[in-house]
Design a protein around this nucleic acid. Sequence first.
DNA 1: GACGACAGGATTGTTGGCAATCCGGGGCGC
DNA 2: GCGCCCCGGATTGCCAACAATCCTGTCGTC
Lengths: 213, 213
Amino acid sequence: MASAAQATAERALREAILRGDMPPGYRLVEAELVALTGVSRSAVRLAIDALAAEGLVERIQNKGARVRVVSTEEAIAITECRMPLEGLLARKAAERLTDSEADRLRAHLHTMVAAVDSGDVLKYSALIQQLHGMVGEAARHPIAADLVGRLQAQLVRHQFRLSLRPGRPRVSLGELSELVHAITERDPDRAEAAATSHFRSVITALSETAPES
Amino acid sequence: MASAAQATAERALREAILRGDMPPGYRLVEAELVALTGVSRSAVRLAIDALAAEGLVERIQNKGARVRVVSTEEAIAITECRMPLEGLLARKAAERLTDSEADRLRAHLHTMVAAVDSGDVLKYSALIQQLHGMVGEAARHPIAADLVGRLQAQLVRHQFRLSLRPGRPRVSLGELSELVHAITERDPDRAEAAATSHFRSVITALSETAPES
DNA sequence: GACGACAGGATTGTTGGCAATCCGGGGCGC
DNA sequence: GCGCCCCGGATTGCCAACAATCCTGTCGTC
């Protein structure tokens, strides 16, 4: 994040990867990114370094960088780490929630219900991420929120894949609804339990997608 | 870790910071590090970037880098994140421990007892870190182990400070002894409980050192 | 004496070019 | 035909100089 140029390149790259252009394994040629972002090659280079440190891209000496490929096994391992951290955030959020944050959480939940009812998977995926962002903010625990954010970023593709499975959004919505209720009712224990229980369910769902290999 | 030069600089810097030369707040002048490590300035620069991404170093635009200052509040927050992750590692280690690893864990525990008995705080601190390293390895969960490693690195100074308090090593040893026993007896639930309970104790001890501010 | 502008030195950030490495294709021998 | 070698283009890694920024100490003014 040093210079503005590097920040620009980093943002563009991150968004392109998270959006799904540049799929996993995609070769990141520096010259191409220079043309794409309009910044100098060194800035691109630093941006790649930064994203490599975050685990979004993989760099191999003399062979360039590629968008990181996250296997299902890795996705499970990452979620195993994320689970208790989200539990921590949920607990803290339940303890420290302001009234206005509670209102916004409830409103957000309604939006999510509507998205599931209308079958808009893409929108629902985005709303889930926003929900976790709101919880992370309400928890006032920047360190945990930052860790979770990095882990989350590595999982977007798998989460989206999951939400395409018929019936999955409905299950997820039920669990997240319980989470929101627990937090807005300021019940830390219940909130933590709801969060861990949700991610346990995610792990189970992930395991079903690729038990072979 | 791209080139050998950068790896050299990164290792030297990390060790210097963790060892305690270069205390928190210490100004990292690039030219000085060039003289110290014998590598080029660009390599030093990349090494600083890498350590900044790990949270060991803080970089401010146009004002250079400093060894990160971790307040007691931050140390508590970091430990809150570390706690459940160490619990996860302890659980996995208990599930996946090999016999030879069990032997080494038990032997390591004996060494730790001896260090505490002889009052060698410095050695005991190092042994604790090694213990966690062994657990992390036995857990065969590289993602969690990596996360914990990064968090641990930010805490070395606080952990050392804690271990200087009279009586603290004895308390810590008891908790870690329970952890080792639970793992070597392959009891995942007990292992996880022992790990979380130990770090809860660490958080309590940290809170006592600076409840003001 | 206090305050503010300013210049000089020190330090960081960035650019451009050069060296090293990798990859694909064509040629040669068998 | 098959395998090996070597070469040229493409791409990454590195370095040294240049530009921008910050800090410090000094001078001048009030």
